[in-house]
């Protein structure tokens, strides 16, 4: 009797195939994520590009306190380098939008007064407004830069910024069990914003170069969305070094990290804290450069 054994049921094939597929996907995804995250940490200053003109920056604003702190952080923003600003506000938060417009008006005033000064004192070589020199810069380099700066234009005015609205991740008295749904909605809505034209009159489309965040829950989801785009290298997000992320922990956090910080600390390019006691928290990633606000 040479009866062939009955073929295993089809379901078994499907199951093992699925398992193999899942395992493979999981392994590949982990490796990809690992490369993304470790490359950020070990990027050496020597490999850096020397200039990146017309950078686009996306700024996530939050509720009152977070928005206030964000504009303190941005007080030295140089519009000659950061030519396009996108402000992301939560739906129903009119205050943050108003603050963004106010801030942009301030940038315009700063630019016009600086332009006036330039004409007067071309010979005197005025110091550049950012006088935080890198340690490896010697005096000659500094002179060269201020020479170059003079030709740069200040990119201010309504054509250089846009305000985008994102559904709120979690409303104030929202029951906890519905949070995943609203968070998912925020997460999905973050993609069109990251992929949309960054200013209304921009002739060329591009992804933001830098994403700036502090505490609000919305910021967490924007960072995750950016990570997904980098993971799949959509529109060259990863290969062209776009969508770099900075998270600045609130000045009010002295010895414990906020929930937002714990959620994004592992995947942002720069994780900044403002008090010495938090240095090295978040798995050793937290950098402390003193109070930043």
């Amino acid at each position: 009797m040479s009866a062939t054994p009955p073929p295993p049921p089809k379901t078994l094939y499907t199951l093992s195939f699925l398992l193999a597929l899942l395992t493979t996907t999981f392994v590949i995804a982990s490796l990809r994520l690992l490369t993304l995250l470790t490359r950020q940490r070990h990027r050496s200053p020597a490999k850096r590009k020397t200039s990146k003109p017309n950078a686009r920056v996306l700024i996530v604003l939050g509720s009152g306190g977070h928005t206030h702190e964000m504009f303190y952080l941005l007080r030295d923003l140089d519009t000659r380098k950061y030519a396009h600003r996108t402000y992301v506000v939560s739906s129903g938060d009119a205050f943050s939008g108003r603050r963004a417009v106010e801030f942009e008006r301030g940038l315009e005033e700063k630019a016009s007064s600086a332009a006036g000064k330039h004409i007067k004192s071309v010979v005197d070589s005025p110091p550049s407004p950012n006088n935080n020199n890198n340690n490896n810069n010697n005096n000659n380099n500094n002179n060269d830069t201020s020479e170059k700066d003079r030709d740069d234009t200040w990119n201010t005015g309504p054509s250089h910024y846009t305000i985008q609205t994102l559904p709120r991740a979690r409303r104030i008295h929202q029951p906890l069990y519905t949070t995943p749904f609203t968070a998912l909605q925020t997460f999905l809505s973050a993609f069109p914003i990251l992929l949309s034209q960054t200013s209304p009159n921009a002739t060329t489309f591009d992804l933001p170069d830098l994403i700036l965040t502090n505490g609000p829950g919305t910021a967490v989801l924007v960072i995750y969305a950016a990570l997904v785009l980098r993971f799949f290298n959509i529109r060259g997000a990863e290969s062209r070094g776009k969508l770099r992320t900075i998270y600045a922990e609130s000045f009010a956090r002295v010895s414990t990290l906020s929930l937002s910080a714990r959620l994004v600390g592992w995947c942002v390019d720069r994780f900044l804290v403002q008090w010495e006691g938090l240095e090295g928290s978040g798995g050793g990633r937290a950098e402390w450069w003193g109070v930043l606000v």
Binding site: A55, N134, T145, W289
Partner: peptide, 17 residues
């Protein structure tokens, strides 16, 4: 020396002063 937030931004994008 302390670093300003503006300097950290430049640094992250590789913009040198």
């Amino acid at each position: 020396e302390t670093k300003s937030f503006a300097a950290i931004m430049d640094d992250t994008l590789g913009i040198l002063e």
